[in-house]
Design a protein around this nucleic acid. Structure first.
Lengths: 255, 255
DNA sequence: TAAGTTGTTCTCAGAATGAGTTGTTCTCGA
DNA sequence: TCGAGAACAACTCATTCTGAGAACAACTTA
């Protein structure tokens, strides 16, 4: 093995990055939110080749003075039109890097994908630019043409989101700062895609230390179709849920 | 917000990557193994500035024709001297990207770190190159000078490894293809850093579907200090453990 | 006011977990 | 060769956690 390969030390010594075809580094953002009880994703319709007319994740080149997280947050700011505290409340984490040498026909592009959880936001079209940007329900993605390997990135992001809800309190990032347990349960139900037992969920959330804390207040009114006012909570200070809120095992025992 | 920022469409149109200072993309590998009951990490002593004489993760530039996973596996092959089936059995996954603009004093380098789990391997010094490469116990790292941000990458890798053992069967990748339950428990104990109840561990491992399957055989001899022969198992076909093997909550309730 | 909805708490059976015990098989050293 | 100790494997038992359902009061709209 070793013999068949250029010695790394020599390789580095002889290496000048500029001799190689340039590698571009981009950030892409899988930004999720919940609208009208359905999980939505921020997408942009491409106005130029390649993949003209296809939908793509918001993203772009990393600039020389910013790291990847800053680049991703900048892209998010540009496309949502958000800034300041509203922007800061959005959860943003690194998802992974996508590096197939042929993923972009123009040149070698390594993209570092990020995952964002945001509360319901105004339509991106409300901004000054007439980018064709929109929050689309993730259920409608199968029928859309997606650019590059963004379909793959999105499904990785969705799976990451589902699993993050299990062991972190990040579900609260889909909600306003004050929320009811029922709203929190609705987040789990829409991200996981199946209903949960209301009573058990309630018991569990309140028993996990640091997940939520009571504000003492209640909602102004009962539910739209009746029922008592609900108590209001805010996110607690836990970064991880112990014990976790595991999603019920799928009937196929994942073998 | 939006107004203060160059419009992305225009930015891309006007953008030629070669106008920017080149961004280099490297892969680094946090390769873990278990030797003599202790967790070890593959490190290389740097022979040239910057950080001359410091210890660094094995890694290097991604080549034009390979993706990141291939680059990481190549680095692993070069430094361990392994190939073929032995190399293929090593678990390799992406850990994350590290992108501080100043992380390498020479130029802008974005490194995509990977995490590897390997069974006990011969010393890297056995290869033809006299690289100063060695498997070092992770407990000895605090006292070593580490290059770049590799200390950070390593601790992220260790935390990822600890958590991966909870919900995947990857602990088996630290072992030979056939192993005993006690050897498997030893992997958990050294990675997690505390002893586990032998009886409960045994019950749990055998009850998780697809974690291990019996070979029907037993070890040739009993334990070094006595005891009966142990039954041999091999890894099952599960990719995820359901239910997971959760590590006991640390006494501070992680708030 | 009646009918229906929902937030919250409770009950109870079954499953999973932590801790300890038992029986047996083996190695080593006296 | 035998006894002491080690450790694999299986078991028991008390406790905790979970899933499912029921109860009930507080609210809505019709």
């Amino acid at each position: 093995m070793r013999e068949t390969v250029v010695n790394e030390q020599d390789f580095l010594a002889a290496y000048d990055p500029r001799d190689y075809p340039a590698v571009a580094v981009t950030v892409d953002v899988v930004a999720l939110t919940i609208r009208e009880g359905a999980l939505h994703l921020l997408l942009i319709r491409r106005g130029a080749p390649p993949y003209e007319g296809h939908w793509a994740l918001p993203g772009g080149f990393v600039r020389p003075d910013e790291d990847l997280a800053a680049g991703a947050r900048r892209e998010l700011a540009e496309e949502t039109g958000l800034g300041g505290e509203r922007l800061r409340r959005i959860h943003l984490e690194q998802l992974g890097s996508y590096s197939d040498p042929d993923r972009d026909p123009r040149m070698r592009v390594v993209s570092v994908a990020h995952l964002a959880f945001a509360p319901d936001l105004p339509d991106p079209a409300a901004g000054t630019d007439a980018d064709d940007a929109a929050w689309l329900p993730v259920t409608a993605l199968a029928s859309r043409q997606l650019a590059f390997d963004h379909g793959r990135i999105i499904s990785d992001g969705l799976e990451r989101a589902r699993s993050k809800l299990e062991y972190t309190p990040l579900a609260t990032r889909f909600l306003d700062p004050e929320f009811t347990i029922t709203e929190l349960r609705a987040v789990y139900e829409t991200v996981w895609g199946h209903p949960l037992h209301a009573g058990n969920f309630h018991r569990k959330v309140l028993s996990v230390p640091g997940f939520v804390e009571s504000t003492g207040a209640s909602t102004e009114r009962g539910g739209a179709r009746g029922g008592p006012r609900a108590k209001l909570y805010r996110a607690g200070d836990a970064r991880l849920l112990h014990p976790a809120l595991l999603r019920p095992a799928r009937e196929e025992t994942v073998r």
